[in-house]
């Protein structure tokens, strides 16, 4: 598998299958166990954001998932046809807040950025919303 592409139904039941698809490619790209976990977590969070925010719920659209095994790591491309978002407008999570004040807003995107080496997001009328995540091999 140098490159592979699969279409998954946009629902929570698909997440485990998506993570397995990513893990297989990550291992082939030579990522270590921490790297494999990191890209799996980033992709899981990104797919949840697609289901919850782009599609506004389960079973409203597909997630097109492409993996490219490169000599220096793994590139994952996720495409959806839902509502686009501006990553710069998502608030940062409230790190350091006391327990009773902490709220979930923004944690998913923050985790994605922390887990991968590069994140790109763009939206186009022809293609939909495209998120590219790259994880370097250590």
């Amino acid at each position: 598998m140098k490159s592979a592409r699969r279409l998954f139904a946009g629902r929570y039941d698909s997440l485990n299958e998506i993570r397995e698809f990513i893990a297989e490619a990550a291992q082939e790209a030579g990522l270590d166990s921490q790297g494999v976990y990191a890209i799996k977590l980033a992709v899981d969070e990104a797919c949840c954001n697609i289901i919850d925010h782009a599609y506004g719920g389960e079973n409203r659209g597909d997630i097109d998932c492409q993996v490219d095994v490169r000599s220096d790591g793994l590139l994952v491309t996720l495409i959806d046809q839902g509502k686009p978002f501006d990553p710069n407008k998502v608030p940062s999570p409230q790190i350091g807040k006391p327990l009773k004040e902490v709220k979930p807003r923004g944690v998913g995107l923050y985790l994605i950025k922390k887990m991968v080496d590069k994140m790109e997001y763009r939206t186009s009328a022809g293609q939909g919303n495209v998120m590219r995540l790259f994880k370097h091999k250590r």
Binding site: Y37, C48, V107, G108
Partner: peptide, 9 residues
């Protein structure tokens, strides 16, 4: 073996 942010919440 896996916990996403939904799990942490």
């Amino acid at each position: 073996d896996f916990i996403s942010s939904k799990g942490w919440w």
